[in-house]
Structures are given as structure tokens and as C-alpha cells.
């Protein structure tokens, strides 16, 4: 894409800003910040990737993946800030998922061990797993309100934390995986995934692009399941105080 064409893409943002002004949505400032940030962040990562691909040093790959995991953990953890230690648990869950998935992908030589493959695929794994974590935590937060009575009743009957929270945890894990599974059912019919589209635009054979997309879909399903499982297992205790009481309810967030 030429520089001129790139600059012209700003007109899409102008449409959004124009609508916001016309409809008095008050989003102009947000749109401006969003535009600026996405342009700067993407250009920055473009140059970083350019550099990493050239040097091809494993240390850079590891650093980039670690950064992805940390940012994702920080972001998803904002959903349950009051739960102390949740961000480190999310980071562990993401690292487990990324580690296992990459080990399989590289071990069976499904993708070649070069940064060109490892970094984008890691981004997809960590990014979608982050969304799964966010959904899981959102759902757990709701469960802590709606199923509080049931959990307390079980605790009163001498249940352990795990027994008391089990049903809620199961419902939350399910809820966090459903979007990924639904996505698998409609992919190709409703949405054409970004990676596949990107490959086709860049001149790849559509069938080859589809083969990679199939790989990605299956990786997403397994990583959603793995992340939700691991996170729920290592974090359920955080919803309790140390003497097996439920954490107090948080005051409602101001809109």
C-alpha cells in the first residue's frame, strides 16, 4: 500500500467523527485518541517485527510474547480489580495456554519455527485467550451476586470453597467458551477471519489461506478451553477470604 493510500484511510475516521458530531454522541475525542493510538501502536509494532524478523534471535521472540501476555493479563484483570492477585493468575493461565499450544505446533512441525509464524500465531492465541479470561471473570462477578445465597448455604453446611463455588465456576467456564465455539460454527459463512483475509489480500492462494485458518480455528478452540480451565482452577480461591468466607460484594460501579 502506498503512503498516499495509507493517508487516505483517515477519511474512514472522518466519517465516524462526523457522525459523532452530527448526532452529538460526544465521541470525537475518543475517536481522535483511538485513531492516533492505533496508528502509532501498529506502526511501532511493524518496525519492531521488521527488526525481529531480520535478527531472528529467540530472545526477542520470547520478550515479545511475554509483553503480549503481560498486557493481556493487565487488561483482562481490570474486569475484576477487587479480586487480589487475579492478574498474576491470568498471566499464568495465558502462559500455560501459549506454552502448550506452541509446543504442539512446533513439536509436530505444524508451523515452522521462525518469528514470522510464531509471533502472529502467539498474538492470536494470547488475544483470544484474553477475551476468554475477561468473559470468565465477568461471569464470575455476576455469579458472586446471583448465586451468593447458594454458595453461602453450602458453606454453612460445611462445604469447602471448591464445593461451594463449583456450580458457578462451571457455568462461567461454559459461558466464556461459547463465543469461540459459536465462532467455529459460522466461520466462513458469516465472517471471513482477519488472518485469512490478510493472506488473500497479500496474494496467497485462498485454499492455502483457508488451511491456515482451519489451524487457527482449532487452536482457538483448544486455547479457549485450556485458558478457561486453568484460570478457573488457579483462581477460584481468590473469591474467598482466607477463612473460607465469600469476599464482600463490591459496591456497584458508577456508570
Amino acid at each position: 500500500m502506498s503512503n498516499m493510500a495509507l493517508i487516505c484511510t483517515v477519511c474512514f475516521v472522518a466519517v465516524a467523527a462526523f457522525i459523532s458530531m452530527k448526532q452529538k454522541l460526544g465521541l470525537e475525542k475518543e475517536i481522535l485518541i483511538g485513531t492516533f493510538r492505533s496508528a502509532v501502536q501498529l506502526l511501532f509494532i511493524g518496525y519492531v517485527l521488521h527488526f525481529v524478523f531480520e535478527t531472528s534471535h529467540p530472545a526477542f521472540i520470547v520478550i515479545i510474547i511475554l509483553c503480549m501476555i503481560l498486557v493481556a493479563a493487565w487488561n483482562a484483570g481490570a474486569k475484576a480489580k477487587h479480586v487480589r492477585g487475579i492478574r498474576s493468575r491470568i498471566a499464568i493461565a495465558l502462559a500455560c495456554t501459549e506454552g502448550v499450544t506452541m509446543a504442539i505446533l512446533l513439536g509436530f512441525r505444524i508451523i515452522s519455527p521462525t518469528p514470522q509464524y510464531i509471533i502472529p500465531v502467539s498474538g492470536i492465541i494470547v488475544g483470544s485467550s484474553m477475551i476468554v479470561c475477561g468473559l470468565l471473570l465477568n461471569h464470575m462477578k455476576r455469579e458472586m451476586e446471583t448465586a451468593r445465597g447458594e454458595m453461602e448455604m453450602l458453606l454453612a453446611l460445611g462445604a469447602t470453597e471448591k464445593q461451594a463455588i463449583h456450580s458457578s465456576l462451571r457455568r462461567s467456564v461454559r459461558a466464556s467458551m461459547i463465543p469461540t465455539i459459536d465462532g467455529m460454527k459460522t466461520v466462513g459463512l458469516v465472517q471471513l477471519p482477519g488472518m485469512m483475509t490478510g493472506m488473500i489480500v497479500a496474494g496467497a492462494d485462498p485454499v492455502e489461506a483457508v488451511r491456515y485458518q482451519i489451524l487457527i480455528m482449532f487452536v482457538l478452540a483448544s486455547s479457549a478451553a485450556m485458558t478457561a480451565m486453568v484460570l478457573s482452577l488457579i483462581s477460584y480461591r481468590l473469591w474467598f477470604a482466607k477463612d473460607a468466607r465469600l469476599l464482600p460484594l463490591q459496591p456497584a460501579e458508577k456508570p
Binding site: 445465597g149 447458594e150 453461602e152 448455604m153 458453606l155 454453612a156 453446611l157 460445611g158 462445604a159 469447602t160 477463612d243 473460607a244 468466607r245
Partner: peptide, 24 residues
């Protein structure tokens, strides 16, 4: 003392029954 006890075994001996019944 309560702080030195296992909460599960405590609650098995000292059991609270809530006013609002919660059914599983």
C-alpha cells in the same frame, strides 16, 4: 479460637440456617 480453627469443621458443628431458604 476461630482464627486457629478449620472453618469447615467449625461450620459442621455450628450451623447457620438462613431465614430465606435457598434451594439448589
Amino acid at each position: 479460637s476461630s482464627s486457629a480453627s478449620n472453618p469447615q469443621s467449625w461450620r459442621k458443628k455450628v450451623t447457620y440456617v438462613a431465614q430465606k431458604p435457598v434451594m439448589r
